[in-house]
Amino acid sequence: MKTLSHHDALVYVMVTMSAVDRTMTDQELARIGRLCRFLPVFDGFDDERLVAVSRECGALLAGAEGLDIVLEVIREALPPRLFDTAYALAVEIAAADLSVRDEEIRLLQLLRDRLGLDKLTCAAIERSAIARFRA
């Protein structure tokens, strides 16, 4: 398996969060595209690769032990300074449709544990999403 760039790994995070409840909503997909175009962490990322990277992630997820493999690939590809960024992107996608399901909560827990993030940092990221998405 090829080594992912940090851009690809962050896209994997978002695609995995979008797919975890077996439905990728239009809101989630649109948000992934906007985040890749807008956020400084994606500077230098070729938008034309978004679909291909998303498909690669989907193919890995569909395989045996797919989620575990994807989480490990993400952890290996990201520098530690981007672990909290990855978690923030996962929260952003989970909140995109204004409903966070049990599967999404479980994935956030798995991601937090895999990346070794502390609960206080994660709670702050989650709280900021609640404030941003409040109607």
Rank of each mutant, 00 (worst) to 15 (best):
D102N: 07
I125V: 03
L110P: 00
L107A: 14
L107M: 08
V100W: 00
L107C: 13
E103L: 09
L110V: 04
I125E: 01
L110C: 02
L117D: 09
K119A: 06
L111W: 03
L108N: 10
L120W: 14
R112K: 15
A123Y: 03
C122R: 02
Q109T: 10
D113I: 11
R114M: 04
D113S: 15
E103W: 03
R127A: 14
R112T: 13
R114Q: 11
T121I: 03
L120Q: 15
A129E: 11
L108P: 01
E103K: 11
R101C: 10
L108Q: 10
A131F: 01
I125D: 00
S99N: 15
I125L: 08
R127E: 10
L111V: 04
S128E: 08
D113C: 13
E104G: 11
S99M: 13
A129I: 07
E103S: 12
R106P: 06
S128P: 01
D118M: 04
R106C: 11
L98W: 09
S99P: 07
A129R: 06
A129D: 05
E103G: 05
L98P: 14
R112M: 10
S99Y: 15
E103H: 11
A131P: 00
V100G: 06
E104A: 13
D113H: 11
L108C: 09
L120A: 13
C122F: 01
L107G: 08
I125F: 00
I125G: 00
R106Y: 15
L107D: 02
V100D: 02
R112Y: 08
I105S: 09
R112H: 14
G116M: 05
E104H: 06
E104P: 04
V100F: 08
T121M: 05
E104S: 11
T121F: 06
G116Y: 03
R114N: 03
L98S: 12
A129K: 08
T121P: 06
G116C: 01
K119H: 06
A129M: 09
C122L: 02
I130T: 13
S128Q: 10
L110W: 04
Q109G: 13
L98E: 13
G116F: 05
A123M: 04
L115A: 02
L110R: 05
A123K: 01
L120Y: 14
R101L: 15
I105A: 12
L111P: 01
L98M: 09
E126Y: 09
T121E: 00
D102F: 09
E126W: 00
C122I: 01
R114C: 07
A129V: 07
L110S: 07
R112L: 12
L117M: 14
L110F: 13
A129L: 03
G116D: 07
R114W: 01
D118R: 12
D113Y: 12
R101M: 13
S128L: 12
C122V: 11
I130E: 06
K119Y: 02
A124P: 02
K119V: 06
I125M: 00
L107V: 08
R127D: 10
D102W: 02
I105Y: 12
L120I: 09
Q109V: 15
L111E: 02
L120V: 05
T121W: 02
E104C: 14
Q109W: 14
A129H: 07
E126S: 03
D113A: 15
D102T: 14
